[in-house]
Design a binder for these strands. Structure first.
Lengths: 196, 196, 196, 196
DNA sequence: AATGAATGAGCCTTCATTCAT
DNA sequence: CATGAATGAAGGCTCATTCAT
């Protein structure tokens, strides 16, 4: 529309190019196996430009993480509605998450790499993506309807995300294959773990 | 015992010194944040000596991983006996693993770092520590006694190791605290997940 | 000419600085006796810069060889003209080559070092400087005028370059001294070798 | 025969093993491409042993050179007799040398490598193998019979060894092939070069 | 603002030589 | 005398970041 909007679009586009390139290279070769030069090449952008969008490599990693977390939350809640029953919402979230992880292995790998990298120790990393309110609502409803075990949300969360994570790792690595039926059983088992 | 036994141990001792130093530095600073020079210093050994024990940095990492996996299996099965009931063995293994992870955070962190490092892609890394026979026996007994859901051992394993792993991460990071009672509940919830 | 011409030369200048330094150090201390660090120092350039101009030490060596070969061909043909008689051209080339080798001992030494280094085994080294057309013409004319023995050009070439090379080695090493008259005799003897 | 002779034999054998291994590795990989460890392995001898026979790598190289030079002189004069005519002796020496070089490419390559290595600059290298008296006699007879051009022996030598050397290089490298007839022509051409 | 050449500390690894056994 | 593990300086090369243009 005007001069400024053009620039803004370009800038956002470049930022995205960089993040996309970063995800590809980081998940394939690790943080240290990816030089800023290769990153720039993959993003088809001059090196200097990266530094106009991110203070440095480390900040880029943190930014990518934030991005991935947001994307994951979005995927997780696709089709979510407070109107659904707690069990229905559980299934929805579980399936969404599983599907997302399997169809976005790079995102999954990067997130796990990040989780145990020394980067996380940095105070800067404290900038977490805020957990979505829908999730809070889900737990609240579960407790108030007397469906959940008397354990904290974070523990209940661990009881379902844990197996999911473990399975995604195995399936992605080709160590295990899950039939549609297996998947239902596993999801149901996860429910068993958190349900009274 | 004799004059020679001292000499014999020297080599194994150095190897151990190196692995201990590696675990410390890798878990604190990551693989790439740890130079061979720093490693040597930490192990109080000249750089060249490391190369007499390991072909290179990469091989050292693989060797350490194998070591950690073995140590973990050992810890996991401390006090194990086929004479115990399936449920008793489940509790034993679960608690052993949890305790080991919490009391050996470096081992835990290193193992996770390794799992998602690009190193794992190497065919060489396929050399895995063999899963212990006790674990196989445990699953067999569980199936034959009709206690487990009709899912493969690797899936059942994921259903308990997953939450455990997730919780260790949170507790180690100081994000969650578990009371003794919580822990019992979680373990019980894991049983619920795999039990019919 | 203009402001930019200065800039344009910078790159070529640096490349030259590096090659000059390389020739000096290689001919004095050999390929392996010359570290990239020393090379950089001699060229008065930071190490990293060398790698912007050459992929690595090996490539630098090949590049230098190509350079030397070209320079040598140029020197060889200084004053060459198809109008000269075959014998005149023979003398011209012979003297040019001899003078060049004696006045450029580093080039001579480097070329010989290169010829027997394991580097030459690399397929990459097959990229040779093309032999100049003047040389081909010279042999053609010699044959068609019935002046040369019925041997292939490469053999005839060996019959004159061989003694020349051997003498340069000796003279450079100070083992032999050649008077102006000796030189004429030797050149004439070389002619005898190839002439019918 | 006795205790000492055994040792002597063993020692000489080991020395030979080392020199043979050195020739193989040096000619294939160069001086610097050959570590003392690889050398020891190739010689099937412990590293330490090499140092009992040679003061260090450099001395080993010089020693090998001396060895090669002696071997070459021996080959050169095989079948030599003062009774032969000057021309017959010329042919004998020429053919002997050519055959030796072609059938002993490693020796040839090593000698050339050595000739231009910075090692030669060392005062220690001044230890040359003495030129054989037969060669001196050959030149004397040639001069006194009025067969040779009035040039110093070293120059005459260069006039025949030069082409020979150049041809061996080409033939060994597979760049040129010489028929039996070519060879005769070349030898004859070399004679032309030195003869009045 | 945009570019990408320049920088030099730092990395992993090798190796000639020694010397305790 | 024989051995080969030990040593650590030195080597080739990479790369995050800067800054002149």
């Amino acid at each position: 529309m005007n001069v400024h909007s053009e620039d803004k679009t370009t800038d956002a586009t470049k930022r995205r190019q960089i993040l996309v390139a970063a995800l590809t290279l980081f998940s394939d070769h690790g943080f240290h196996g990816t030089s800023m030069a290769k990153l720039a090449k993959q993003a088809d952008l001059p090196v200097g430009t990266i530094y106009r969008h991110f203070a440095g490599k480390e900040e880029l990693i943190h930014a990518l993480y934030l991005d991935m977390k947001t994307e994951r939350y979005d995927a997780m809640l696709k089709g979510y509605s407070d109107g659904l029953s707690v069990r229905e919402r559980f299934d929805l979230i579980w399936i969404n998450t599983y599907d997302y992880c399997l169809s976005h292995p790079r995102q999954f790998v990067f997130t796990e790499q990040y989780a145990f990298s020394p980067f996380l120790k940095d105070a800067a990393a404290a900038i977490h993506a805020v957990a979505p309110p829908e999730l809070a609502k889900f737990f609240e409803d579960g407790y108030s309807e007397g469906l959940f075990k008397p354990l904290s949300p974070s523990i209940l969360f661990a009881l379902t995300s844990g197996p999911l994570n473990a399975l995604v790792r195995r399936v992605t690595a080709g160590l295990t294959t899950l039939t549609k039926h297996d998947l239902d059983s596993v999801r149901s088992a996860c429910w068993d773990a958190i349900a009274l």
